[in-house]
Design a binder for these strands. Structure first.
Lengths: 333, 333
DNA sequence: GCAATCAATGTAAGTGCTTACAATTATTCT
DNA sequence: AGAATAATTGTAAGCACTTACATTGATTGC
């Protein structure tokens, strides 16, 4: 069953069938209707390979993420796929893990699959050393590269980022305004968004005239139990803190567990602000005040931008979206 | 840059180049090395479209799930993609939502994309009414259909399921053995695995000679807060229960929150068993005893089975994997 | 009424690969 | 050495589509 069968049955040439297939306007309404009817009758589906060969596109976008089971990324994937599909594109998923080498390998793989663009979901793709990003720049020479919550400068590279810095600044400022003096900042990684968040924290302290003490900035892996233990050990080493801002809800959830088992009341004795407004913020008890990083808006904007790129429009290479501070039970502002 | 460029530069025919590309053994080591060297030198990548046209396969598998941001499915997607990729296959993701019509539409779409198989992740794809599954059976006439944690009988349809019934049976029996008399079962949906879980619960009660009271079997949507409220309202209507078995961790997490705020001690006064061993079981305080439904094993088996189907092996149409009962703080057995 | 224009359709040459079959070269056997 | 056989390699015909260009037929202007 191919285009010849249709053309024969409809008494037209294959070119006409192809035109109908591609919505070419140079077909009379009568023949178009006839061809469509035959296609329907025969249950004809065009062969995507032959089509791809001719058009050199498969209407498929590669989505790369480090780990689709991460709460944040799982959401991003959902929204990206949804919005791509509503624009008539498929999504090939590629979970790369965290090794630079693997990322590069999968990048090549997606390129060789002739995807029409690659979306990098999450801030884990832009490396510190510029030369480690050359593989992205190289790919951008062929197809558009879209960063969701990451930023890289370059031709044919487009970023949509959340204003993490402003969000953390706001959260920290509010905590300071409501009387907190010893803010502890815990973070998981130093990616693009990670360093922005930290900068927001530092700026808030500076603007409020509070000292910036290195022991109040701590790293911890993204793990509730590990975070809980970290807080206990900080307590043990005598560090006093009346508020915690975490770069991820899992760390904030650890803080809640720490306070609950240590008999510290939330938010009276300890205020906690999480990040990402994930399911963990609702599972924690009390529920976490958390910064919503607007995944859906980020993804929708990314896809819209990409469609703009495809249609040759003049498109901003960077879009910033404001985060939302979701007030729940772990703060009293 | 195509196969002709390579053949010219290597002084061989395109057929030989193609043979090298496809690992055909009928090429002398010398020419193989020469061709590979030229490919490397030219940075040649075969065109997947042309390849697909000839081979009629793209080495791509469609993964369908209702919602990739669901904790369980996010994990499944991760493992499926990983294992497919390690077998040289790409994964096209398709989040269908819960409408039957949408599922059918996306099914057709994936088929028309000429994927080599479709994996249905999660038990939401097999409908109650057999005629609503005909679209799956139709697709199975063309390509293998793999069900992860769902079961449907049919030619070219393969299922990998978790023994949910045995798992719930075991959990309920242990609770009964350790002195519980009033077990409450809460569930979210009546899918294939949903009804198996419930059956396990019923069997455990029956085998222990406990009465099966309908008010002890309740439905609730997959939402921590909704679950918490459900327990409060049950309490209010006077229902007494000393143990809760939930078909999902989110419901169990709701039970924990209920008990914490109602001042009911866990597990002394109330034991709780969750399902899926998700991040919620670690976020809850106390941590949830939960049934691990072995997503990774399920996914790996599914992919292995699929590879078996591709290689024409004789493959079981149904594989069952045992669940694990992970003991944590919400039970004392 | 006839040339000029335009719309609709058809022809045929790609697109880059696979593979059956033919041709060539190398190896073995007598 | 020469025939028979085996191992390589090449030729050419698909695969199912797109599209530039050619052709046909209809419409318009004068």
């Amino acid at each position: 069953m191919n285009i010849y069968d249709v053309s024969k049955k409809a008494n037209v040439s294959i070119a006409t069938v192809s035109r109908v297939l591609n919505g070419n306007p140079n077909v009379s309404d009568k023949t178009r209707a006839k061809v469509l009817a035959v296609m329907e009758q025969l249950g004809y589906t065009p062969n995507v390979f032959a089509r791809g060969l001719g058009l050199n596109t498969m209407r498929t976008i590669g989505i790369m993420c480090s780990d689709s089971s991460d709460l944040y990324l799982a959401n991003a994937i959902y929204y990206l796929e949804r919005d791509l599909r509503s624009n008539g594109y498929d999504a090939i998923l590629c979970c790369t893990g965290y090794e630079l080498e693997t990322k590069q390998k999968y990048f090549d793989l997606l390129c060789s699959k002739r995807v029409d663009a690659i979306i990098l979901a999450g801030s884990k793709f832009v490396e510190m050393k510029p030369r480690d990003n050359t593989y992205i720049l190289d790919a951008a020479a062929k197809i558009p590269i879209m960063l969701v919550n990451g930023y890289l400068e370059g031709e044919n590279i487009y970023s949509t980022v959340c204003d993490d810095q402003a969000a953390v600044y706001q959260a920290a400022s509010r905590l300071i305004q409501s009387g907190h003096k010893k803010l502890l900042y815990v973070y998981t990684s130093t990616s693009y968004s990670g360093s922005n968040k930290l900068q927001g924290f530092k700026n808030a302290l500076a603007d409020a005239g509070l000292p910036l003490l290195p022991e109040y900035i701590r790293q911890c892996r993204k793990d509730i139990t590990a975070a809980k233990e970290l807080f206990f050990s900080l307590k043990k080493e005598g560090l006093e803190f009346d508020a915690v801002i975490a770069s991820d809800d899992s760390l904030a959830a650890g803080a809640v567990k720490y306070a609950n088992t240590a008999g510290i009341s939330i938010p009276e004795e300890l205020s906690i602000v999480g990040y990402n407004n994930s399911i963990l913020s609702l599972c924690s008890d009390p529920e976490l005040t958390s910064i919503d990083s607007k995944v859906e808006a980020l993804c929708t904007t990314t896809v819209n931008t990409l469609m703009g790129v495809f249609s040759g429009g003049n498109v901003p290479s960077r879009t910033t979206i404001a985060a939302d501070l979701i007030k729940r039970e772990t703060t009293n502002f």
